[in-house]
Structure formats: structure tokens, C-alpha cells
């Protein structure tokens, strides 16, 4: 009784204060919120929406003298030239295959790692495991590729020393087209599995312990408990991360590929994004490469929409 009275009194006071502040006062209060947003929104418009204006050069023959707006329209000429070029198939295949293999091989690894962390009985050991696997995440791409090149070096690297010890011939890993994708993907796993497992570990700790008890009562082995309790418990998280990954399907690891690329492995390391960089920025073919970049983004966007839709129907989880 007393409480509800106090509550109504408070509410009334609040309403009064609000009303006495008046419409103008409230707008003034929000005016400074918009003032805060001024700079960030201007920045978003300039640096994220500005390039969308510049994207029109994909359909134009960009002439620096005439500027973006004044250059001649050429329709889909650049796209046609790209589709008909001899390197189109190679670029598309490399881009698709590197990303597809990454998705198939690298995506499940952090999930497995999280399950291992979750199943370890020693809490301190599982902390150690986590902390150690995080380390490579904080190293730069340049450093990672540097480590790869010394570690896999044909003369001095321990990998080739091991091969030689077993009587094999040293392999020039970094200059081999055949090894490129394997090295790229496995070093990605090495660098990121620990970090990517964090979300899964958090999700696993949220699974209701009673479910494990119940499964145990029913005589489920630990492997079965992982399969029937742990995994279903984190499916929503898995689906969300999968969608996000597929949304960036066409541009995973561009910087690293660029660093690992050399003339000897170009056959399997030449992807759309590195081609855009070398032909666009270095050789100045802006219009042509803007068109190729647009093609790349459109595939990404299409995949994202498709997968999101599919996930919403089947797993009842989606980004929006």
C-alpha cells in the first residue's frame, strides 16, 4: 500500500517535471545528442557512402581530367571485358576455392577447440590452453607471413630439416603454387582458432547443467553428451558466425594473400581482391578494377542474403 503510493507519487513527480520541462526543453536536451552525432554521421556519409558515389566509375571510362561525374558512360563494358579475360576463371576459382576450403576446414576447428576446453577437468589447464592459443591472434599479418617464411624456409626452416632427416627433398613451400592454399589455410587456423573459440566457450558455459545430468542418467557417454547436449546448445551461435563468415566469403584474408603472393605461386594465389589492388592501385586502371570490385561485393551480398534467409527458415536463427 505504502509502496504503491510512493510509486505513484514518484511517477506524478516525474511526469510533472517532464511536462514542466516542456516540449522545447526536451528538444533542447536532444539537440545536443544530435550535436554529438554530427561528426560521426558526417564521417559515415563521407567515408562509407561517399565511395558509393564513386562506384559509378565502374560503368564509366574514368578520366581524371573530367572527374568522376564528367567521365563518359560505357555501360557494362568493364564487366564484359573482365568476364571474357583469360584470367577470369583463374581469379574466380582461386577466390572461391580458398574461401570454400577455409570454411569447410577452418570453421569447425574453433568449435572443436571450445569443446576440448569445456571437457578438460583441470580448470587451470583449460585456462592455460585458452591463453596460449590466443597469443598468435595479436600478431600482425606481416609477422605471421614472416614466421611462415622462416619456419618453412628450404635451407634453415625446421620443417624442411625434418623432411631431410627422413630422407626427403626440401620443399620450397612459399614459392609453390601447389602448397599455397594449404599453407594459407593452416596458418589461418593456427593464428585464429583460439580467439574464435571464445564465443563458443562462452556459449558452452551457458548450457543448462541439468541437461548433462539428465543425459547421464539416461546412460549417455561423454561423446554422446557432446553430440546431443553441448552441440545443440551452441547451434544458434554457430549459425550466426557461419552467416557472418559467408557474408565475407569473397574477401577473407586478402592482406595475407597479398603478402604471401609471389610470381612462383601466382597460379593459385591470384584472387580477385589482390588483382584489384595490383591492377587498380598500382597500374591505375580505376574504372576496370572498380567494376571487378563491385562484382565481388555483389557476390558477397547475395550470399549473405541467401544464407540468412536459409538459416531463418531451417535453424530459426538469423541476423535479422
Amino acid at each position: 500500500m505504502e509502496i504503491s503510493q510512493a510509486e505513484t507519487a514518484e511517477e506524478a513527480a516525474r511526469g510533472l517535471a517532464r511536462r514542466s520541462g516542456g516540449m522545447l526543453g526536451r528538444m533542447a536536451k536532444r539537440f545536443d545528442l544530435y550535436l554529438m552525432l554530427l561528426l560521426p554521421i558526417a564521417w559515415y556519409l563521407l567515408f562509407h557512402y561517399g565511395p558509393l558515389y564513386g562506384l559509378q566509375i565502374a560503368f564509366k571510362d574514368f578520366n581524371p581530367g573530367k572527374g568522376i561525374g564528367g567521365s563518359e558512360w560505357v555501360g557494362f563494358d568493364h564487366f564484359q571485358r573482365f568476364f571474357e579475360s583469360y584470367y577470369f576463371e583463374r581469379l574466380l576459382w582461386n577466390t572461391l576455392s580458398i574461401n570454400l576450403f577455409s570454411l569447410l576446414i577452418a570453421f569447425p576447428v574453433p568449435i572443436i577447440l571450445a569443446l576440448i576446453v569445456n571437457e578438460l577437468r583441470s580448470k587451470s589447464f583449460s585456462k592455460w590452453l585458452q591463453n596460449i592459443t590466443f597469443i598468435p591472434h595479436f600478431m600482425s599479418v606481416v609477422v605471421i607471413v614472416g614466421i611462415l617464411s622462416v619456419f618453412l624456409s628450404p635451407n634453415t626452416g625446421p620443417v624442411n630439416k625434418l623432411i631431410e632427416a627422413f630422407g626427403g627433398e626440401p620443399i620450397r613451400f612459399m614459392e609453390s603454387a601447389g602448397w599455397f592454399k594449404t599453407i594459407f589455410i593452416s596458418s589461418n587456423i593456427w593464428q585464429n582458432m583460439g580467439w574464435q573459440s571464445i564465443i563458443y566457450i562462452a556459449a558452452l558455459s551457458g548450457v543448462n547443467p541439468q541437461l548433462y545430468e539428465a543425459a547421464k542418467m539416461d546412460g549417455a557417454s561423454r561423446l554422446r553428451r557432446i553430440w546431443h547436449v553441448s552441440l545443440p546448445g551452441i547451434v544458434p551461435v554457430i549459425v550466426i558466425l557461419l552467416i557472418l563468415d559467408i557474408g565475407h566469403f569473397m574477401d577473407v584474408g586478402f592482406e595475407k594473400i597479398l603478402l604471401m603472393q609471389n610470381n612462383l605461386n601466382l597460379e593459385s594465389s591470384d584472387v580477385i581482391s589482390t588483382f584489384v589492388y595490383t591492377t587498380g592501385i598500382l597500374n591505375g586502371e580505376y574504372s576496370y578494377t572498380a567494376a571487378i570490385g563491385l562484382f565481388n561485393s555483389l557476390i558477397n551480398l547475395t550470399l549473405l542474403l541467401l544464407v540468412n534467409r536459409f538459416a531463418r527458415r531451417t535453424a530459426e536463427t538469423s541476423l535479422w
Binding site: Y44, H48, P51, G54, T289, S297
Partner: peptide, 28 residues
């Protein structure tokens, strides 16, 4: 209580999924 916040959030979130790409950004 910020009017228009939904719209602004969409404006911002969209940029996570679509961008002008390397070349237009470089030219800008």
C-alpha cells in the same frame, strides 16, 4: 528517447555488409 535512432542504426549497420570497395575509397 532519441528520435530517428532506428534509421541511423540501419544507416550505420548497413556499412558492415556493403562498401564501395577498394578503388572508390582510394580515389576518395
Amino acid at each position: 528517447d532519441l528520435p530517428g535512432r532506428k534509421f541511423l542504426m540501419v544507416l550505420i549497420t548497413l556499412t558492415m555488409f556493403f562498401s564501395g570497395g577498394l578503388i572508390p575509397t582510394y580515389m576518395l
